[in-house]
């Protein structure tokens, strides 16, 4: 990540979204685009959280259901849901969320970067917990959370296509 390109103010801007009724947040700059869910084409022989592929302006993008990935109960999106298009160094990944809530600028004081929590998943993609108006927001690095295995799958799909 080219951190130097962004000023401090932008560093602390987060895109807040919902997953299973809970608020999650990801750095705004890690998200390339927010799109409305279109028809997701299922792909056989994939892991459960891999929902399939979509076509965005001619690019085939694999979509991962973050609910399933995070071990939450799977749920059909009421309002169609949103897909956050995330770009890492190799490729673009679509992350399916229930709903995008807002863009929030967080103060450093509001963020607890080292909370005492136990988790099964790799905590290197867990940024911390923000406290905003009585509610807690999990701050997650979306790009990092997708494992290498996931990336492989997506990459191979793209290769086949």
């Amino acid at each position: 990540m080219a951190q130097g390109d962004f000023n401090l103010e932008n560093e602390w801007k987060y895109l807040i979204y919902r997953l299973g009724g809970e608020l999650y947040g990801s750095p705004l700059l890690s998200v390339k685009e927010v799109i409305k869910v279109v028809k997701i084409k299922p792909v056989p022989y994939t892991v459960p959280h891999y929902r399939g592929i979509i076509s965005l302006r001619g690019n085939i993008i694999g979509v991962v259901d973050l609910r399933i990935k995070f071990g939450l109960a799977p749920q059909e999106n009421k309002y169609g849901g949103n897909v956050l298009i995330v770009e890492n160094d190799e490729m673009m990944i679509g992350a399916l969320v229930d709903d995008v809530d807002s863009v929030m600028a967080l103060n450093k004081d509001d963020v607890d970067l080292n909370p005492a929590i136990e988790t099964k998943i790799d905590t290197k993609f867990f940024i911390g917990i923000a406290k905003v108006e009585d509610s807690l927001i999990n701050l997650i690095d979306i790009a990092g959370t997708l494992s290498n295995e996931d990336l492989k799958v997506i990459s191979r799909n793209r290769g086949v296509l």
């Binding site: 000023n7 801007k13 895109l15 705004l28 700059l29 685009e33 949103n82």
Partner: peptide
């Protein structure tokens, strides 16, 4: 409203990318 929201998010993202 939904579309506008998306638009605003995307605009916010683009604005953040434009930096200063």
């Amino acid at each position: 409203v939904f579309e506008t929201k998306l638009l605003s998010f995307n605009a916010s993202i683009e604005a953040a990318r434009a930096g200063q």
